[in-house]
Amino acid sequence: MLKYIARRFLFSVVTLLILSLVVFIGVELLPGDLATAFLGREATPTSLASLRAELGLDRPVLERYVNWLGDALHGDLGVSLARNRPVNELIGVRMRNTLLLGLTAGFIGLPLALALGVIAGLTRDRKPDIWISTIALVLMTLPEFVTATFLILLFAITWPILPAVTIVSTGAPIKEMLPNIVLPVVTLTFVMVAHNLRMVRTNVIDVMTSDYVQMAILEGVPYRRVVLRHALPNALLPTINLLAMYIAWLVGGLVIIEQVFNYPGIGTLMIQAVHDRDIPVVQSVILLVASAYVLLNLGADLLTMVLNPRLRSMRG
C-alpha cells in the first residue's frame, strides 16, 4: 500500500515535470521568442535586443528552464512583461475570486450531480431518467458562453434581478462579491452537473446490472438496502477519480465564464495576458492550474484507495 502511494506521488511529480517542460520548452520550440511575440510589429532591433538582454534570452534554453522552474518552486513566478509587476502580485487576489466561484459551484454542483445521476441511473429509460438525461445532454453540449448569455438575457435583461457583469473592483471583500457571482456560479454548476451526472448514471446502471446486485436481490435483500449497501458504494467509487478529472477540465470553462461576466479572476487575467502576448503570465497560470489538477487527482486517487478494499489490500 505504501508502495502504491509512493508510486502515485512519483507519477504526479513526473506529470508536473513533463508539463513544465511542455509549457516552457514548447514555447521555445515555436518560431520566434518571447521578445518578438511581445513586441510584435513595434519591434525594432534595439528594443528587441534590450528586452532579450533583460529577459536573459541570450542564455541557453536549459539553463533558463532550470532557473525558471527553481524560481517557480520557491514561489517566484517571474515578472509580467505587459504590466511590469511580479506575477505573484497579479495572481493573489484573483486566485481568491476564482476559488470563490469554483468552490461555490462545486459545493452546489457535486451533490446535485450525484443525486440526479443516481436517480437517473435507478430509473433507467423511464420518465425521470429520460428527462434528466436529455436536459443534461443539452446543457453539456452548449458552449458555456451561450448558456451564460441566455441566463443574462433572462435574469439581467428580461427580469433585471441580477447584475449582468461584475461591477466591483478586483480586491473587493467577499461580501460585495456575492451578488455578482450568482450567474457565473449557476452557469458553471449547469455545465458541471450535466457532465458529472451522466457519468454517475452510467456507473449506477453498470453496478445495478452486475451479478452481485442481481444476487443480492435474489437473496431477498430489500431494494433500499440493495441500493444503499451493495450498489451505491461500488457505483460511486470510480466516480471520485472522474470527478477530479472533470473539475479540472471545467477550469477551461471557468475562463470563458469569467470573461463573459467580466469577473476579476485568474481567467480574465489569462485572457488579458494572451491578448498582450505576455507569455510569462500565461506560463505561470498554466503551471498553477496544472498543479491544481495534479494535486486534485492525487487526492482522488488516495481517497479511492482508502475507500476501495481492492486497492487497499494490494501488495505491490
Binding site: S210, D211, Y212, H230, R310
Partner: peptide, 10 residues
Amino acid sequence: NTGESLTPNM
C-alpha cells in the same frame, strides 16, 4: 460466476 456474485466492497 460466484466470483462476481459477491459484492466486491463488502
